[in-house]
Design a protein around this nucleic acid. Structure first.
Lengths: 335, 335
DNA sequence: CTGTTAGCGCTTTCAC
DNA sequence: GTGAAAGCGCTAACAG
């Protein structure tokens, strides 16, 4: 592999000169010399050693991203897409993504090692929780990071998130426009921060439509298929005129539960009962009926995160930014 | 951030000594000195700068892995899992995974840059095709790589793959043991190399069971839900006594097509007709009936690839190895 | 047993 | 305009 010395020899100049033309430093290089060097580079197929550059510049051009694996019954296709678009956005900005893993207990050690060995320049966090310890940790360490997802609202840190409130509100407006009045929601437990925003979107939309919220139309449960089943069983235990005509869920998984249980109960989804999911995970388009759902703006989120990260890495005092991006309602047969 | 110099000063020794204790080089360091240095390291929280080490050692401890995104109707949960376990196996071996992306046309430029800038020490390939150009490219370049998946059998390169032949054969034996005689298969087009192995497993199993293969029991089609539907529609157009009683597929996606179409045709899956998928993608456990399927040994594959890669990187003349790992039949309600 | 020193490949100040 | 040289943080001959 050729080094800068080889180029210098080949072009009959000093390595400093080669470096100058490589970096386009204004320190005016004569057009002639520049051409000679460029030709030499071309001839011997030289590319600068990125490790040497990084050592000099005290950087790595690497961004750490922890790869989470979810229980087998959960679907992380959203995170899957996110990883792809994140890598793409990073490359466009001259970075690469270093993916790493960690267990439940040793995350701090893993992040710490990555920081202290100067393996990465920054982190991208995802799947954040309300009082996410990783956020606290990185803020204390004053190590650059951005987060896909919000956390404790009292913490001031840079994040980008899907506007779940807005998405659910849009879906609700759609249902109301379709004539639905008895709209129920399947949500996550109260601790969930992103779940809370979606519930807000639901309640505000009801209010806007002049519909009185019925407490038992809001069902909270874990992120699972079973939650959807349970909710539908309960609602169908009500007198016919009190049953919801539409259900909006916080995840495709519970929507699938609703669809499955609907079959058992002999309910015609799409006619008798409208169902809207969240995430547009693969295969839900093949359910019968195909699931109407809210798709998160993953490519845009990844792009926004990288833009933010670049600002943070380069600037001295980074203004903590927050960006909310709305999901899109994918209309299919279930609603 | 402390450097080796800080440790040396703190411990009152030379940086060489620090380096020696750090690397446990046998150049015997007195127990006393070693302890002093270790204490200094502990005290100031020193960890070696990985970039500096890498520059010196002419390595990166980074393994490139191209992140492929599939069309929205396809499921890459297998690759998703693979990425996780690959990262984990890499870390256990002192490496990290650098994920990158590329388009259809510019892949060569991307790989080339990564090599020439010495960004990575090796590549892990996945989703390989028969005459995969990436393999040719890396073999010519003599750049270290391993592949998850086989390619042109005439090429001598290191790979690890799921033993699809064996997996399908196991599933066939299971079906035969259940009393099935008319067993059909949904396969990929002939070009598919991994598809071909699975067909071999099917045909051999028929032979072993003394069942005469019926040409129209082998349906070939693209990797899609529609393929499954088409196959079932055809088979159900046959006289009742000629219809298969079991179907084995090359992917969960076509199995889903069979299940969906079975509902339209009023076929009781599990009773009237057994169906076995391939991959155990998320959610197929929630289909009605839950899908029996072959799960690839992804963690073991990732581990084997890393072991192989380490040998290749360290040794001069790496013996090209090939490893086949059998999938596991996950028995659920559909067969 | 420990320290001095020469690099790894590059960028950049400072001379000329 | 161009080059000499220092140095990023580390490792490893080579001395002593």
């Amino acid at each position: 592999m050729p080094t800068i010395k080889d180029v210098a020899r080949e072009a009959g100049v000093s390595i400093a000169t080669v470096s100058y033309v490589l970096n386009n430093k204004s320190t005016s290089i004569s057009a002639d010399t520049r051409r000679t060097v460029l030709e030499a580079i071309e001839r011997i197929g030289y590319m600068p050693n990125v490790t040497a550059r990084n050592l000099k510049a005290n950087q790595t051009k690497l961004i750490g991203y922890a790869w989470h694996i979810l229980p087998a019954d959960q679907v992380n296709s959203v995170m899957n897409d996110f990883t792809y678009f994140l890598a793409q956005a990073a490359e466009a900005a001259g970075y690469h993504i270093l993916t790493f893993t960690h267990g439940y207990d040793n995350w701090q050690e893993v992040y710490d090692d990555l920081i202290r060995t100067r393996r990465v320049d920054a982190f991208v966090l995802a799947s954040t929780q309300r009082d996410d310890e990783r956020i606290q940790f990185l803020m204390e360490r004053k190590f650059p990071f951005v987060s896909f997802g919000r956390a404790n609202p009292e913490w001031e840190f840079p994040w980008v998130d899907t506007d779940g409130e807005r998405g659910v509100a849009d879906a609700m407006d759609y249902l109301v426009n379709c004539g639905h009045q008895r709209i129920a929601m399947i949500a996550w437990p109260e601790e969930s921060i992103s779940g809370a925003f979606r519930v807000t979107g639901y309640e505000d939309a009801l209010h806007r439509a002049g519909i009185v919220a019925r407490p038992d139309y809001l069902w909270r449960g874990e992120h699972s298929v079973q939650t959807g089943k349970d909710a539908l069983i309960y609602w169908w235990s009500l007198p016919a005129e009190e049953r919801p005509t539409a259900i909006i869920t916080v995840s495709d998984l519970s929507a699938i539960g609703v669809l499955n249980e609907a079959e058992n109960l002999g309910i015609q989804i799409g006619q008798e009962l409208a169902v809207i999911g969240f995430d547009d995970v693969p295969l839900v388009q093949y359910l019968r009926p195909a699931l109407t759902t809210l798709r998160q703006p993953i490519p845009e989120i990844a792009q926004a995160l990288m833009t933010m990260l670049q600002a943070i890495i380069s600037e001295e005092t980074p203004p903590a930014h927050h960006i909310l991006l709305p999901p899109r309602l994918i209309k299919r047969a279930s609603a």
